[in-house]
Amino acid sequence: MVKKAISVRGLTKRFGDLVAVDGISFDVENGEIFGFLGPNGAGKTTTINILVTIMKPTSGEAFVAGYNVLEDPVKVRERIGVVFQDNTVDRNLTGWENLYIHGLIYGLKGEELRRKIEESLEFAELTKFRDVPVKNYSGGMVRRLEIARALMHKPEVLFLDEPTIGLDPHTRARIWEYIRRLREEGGVTIFMTTHYMDEAEKLCDRVAIIDHGKIVAIGSPDELKSNLGGDILYVKVSDRTISLKEFAEEILEEGTALSYKLLGDTLAFKVRSASKAIPLVFRVADSMNVTIEEIKYAQPSLGDVFLHYTGRELRDEEGDWKEMARMRIAVRRRR
């Protein structure tokens, strides 16, 4: 049997009463980009911390690059590269110095070390800034440096915890390019976490959707979306004498939609085919004296998949970002 890049069985982590990771199991194949998609506090970072051997699980087993994270942590550490959610570079040192220290720690030396540093700087497009202290780098530059650093010792498995968190859209796109380049060059398996669905959709071969420490769905983005079947129809109502719920129930009864969710003053219907459903929705609306202000439809996104399995939305990026900052402060306090 060929060993899997990552293999996890019944992994659980408790912090006191809180179950941060709740008996998850999954496999990651060699060479794929595997994504953990979930909202704040879902247990993504906790899972990564266990897989990279710096946190002990409460129960369950995990193998990385063929080695048990509890029994052979050093073997695992030799075979992985990690980019943590929070930066781990030394901000007082330059890019070059950070790479130099990393290389030494990972057993590189002499000419090879110096060559690897140059290659890494080039990969991160930071050659010009090699002698600038990292505290003067932008967020994107730091992230690029960290990714290049994690790759410097040719790991078999690369862990990226929210690689684009807090970056502007332009910089995010650039980081995505780096990750895609890695897949094209081959040879490294990537395990990444994100709470941006577009990121998971664009980059990952397979995605596990995680919520409250549990994996609720797993598969390729296309699989997950087509499992939902059909389209999503968004109907915004402006004028009505009856409740949205009554209106929606009526449409369900007509057999037009398979299910619905209420999103503020908008109804999201899951339908087999949007083009067939739209006229029917209008007819029901007419008969119930409901005025439709706006109607649009979309192929389901991973966000809809998330909504489908958890009954909640993956919140929009802006709000998420602020909440994350708040949470980070709270976590700091507690530690």
Partner: peptide, 14 residues
């Protein structure tokens, strides 16, 4: 620990 560098050391095989 606060600024993260500690993790770089903890996760290293050294």
């Amino acid at each position: 620990r606060e600024f993260g560098f500690l993790k770089e050391v903890l996760v290293a095989p050294a």
